[in-house]
Amino acid sequence: MEVTTELIVQALWDTLYMVSISLLFGSIIGIILGMLLVVTRKGHILENKLIFSIVNPIVNTFRSIPFIILLVAIIPFTRLIVGTSIGTTAAIVPLVLHIGPYMSRLVENSLLEVDDGIIEAAKAMGATPLQIIYRFLLPEAFPSLILSITTATIGLIGATAMAGAVGGGGLGDVAITYGYQRFSTITIFVTVIILVIIVQVVQSLGNILERKIRRV
């Protein structure tokens, strides 16, 4: 079987599909968990030892499992969620579970960058905890959050290369099955070039967006 342009285009499409869907759900999970990690910590606006001591180790656990292992370890769970354990859609479940906790740490850092003085000012004017999150923390951390999401997206593109293990397809899968296993150097070369371009584009978009929001 020859490597055709069609095959590459399909692989590119699969990669973009996996990245965008898992980025969407991963961001939601990441922002919620990251926010919890910040506001429930000691001395913060919603200090809660219980929630913090549940979320923190969960995030650490997921962060410590190598993606290729997570991919196969949660197959029963994947089947439960999307009804199948192989294919592109099936790859999305482990991708989300991989990137969500990763992103939560990035979000945590972004939110911790917000000056404590801002929160103090918010409290002084009688803002409720929800108002502090929505009106103060998130807007102030927004430029930094954009960069966090950019970093996570690029991590996600790397992770999709392993999706081939559960028949997920995508550029990485093409590079392994056609390039590595069938000794087609040109295929590896082409897929790598495409991945490099995607990463460049994503990073540039992230930087431009961040600069625009930060107005510098």
Binding site: E120, A121, G126
Partner: peptide, 24 residues
């Protein structure tokens, strides 16, 4: 909690480092 938030609107505060929202 709620009454306190309301009462705080009667007390303005300014800070050494201003504590303004840079995003606004």
């Amino acid at each position: 909690e709620k009454e306190l938030c309301e009462e705080k609107k009667n007390i303005g505060m300014i800070f050494q480092h201003f504590n303004l929202l840079n995003s606004k």
